[in-house]
Design a protein around this nucleic acid. Sequence first.
DNA 1: GATAAGATTAACT
DNA 2: GTTAATCTTATCC
Length: 194
Amino acid sequence: MGENQVDWSWLAGEVEQAARNLLGCVLVSTVDGFTVRARIVETEAYSQDDPASHTFRGPTPRNQAMFLAAGHAYVYLSHGLHHCLNMVAGRAGQGAGVLVRAVEPVDGLDVMQARRGGRSGPVLANGPGKVGQALGVDLSLTGHDLTLPPLRLVRGALRQGETISVTPRIGISKAVDLPRRFLITGNAWVSKAR
DNA sequence: GATAAGATTAACT
DNA sequence: GTTAATCTTATCC
């Protein structure tokens, strides 16, 4: 790791470990002049050998950002409506990423609420589409370097006493039983199980 | 060129 | 529990 390089090694190993390491980390978005900070409380891991992953059949125009090195963003449009945010993981060319499924507001709660139609409480960001909306994320951020504005990822950790729960992923139709959803046990801001 | 499905959400019965 | 909204992408012919 040379000078002026950020150490993303904690995201560059096995994608399941990256998904675990992301719990407790903080996303800082500066969009439209507002700064929002939010703590990641729920993630899902996707990799190229995984039938549920966008990268399963190799690089395409949509998923090419997932083949960048760890520390970039991958954003895709879900159902033509929702911007879902991923942290690219693993090594360049690997096609691995971690979907941010839920966040806990840290700063800029009023801005998040306004973007979410005035809603408050856990529905603010307890789902990937809601996270994208609350943070002001859109497709222009796919491939974005997460060391730079308008979207930065700051390493964090679990708080004293917090533990991780592991479950199958939500909303997919392939590899439905793989235990690749990770969340902070008992956290009020995680999405609801199906 | 056509078509089906989708890492979702909110509203409605 | 069910369904509409909404449109890009991948896949197939």
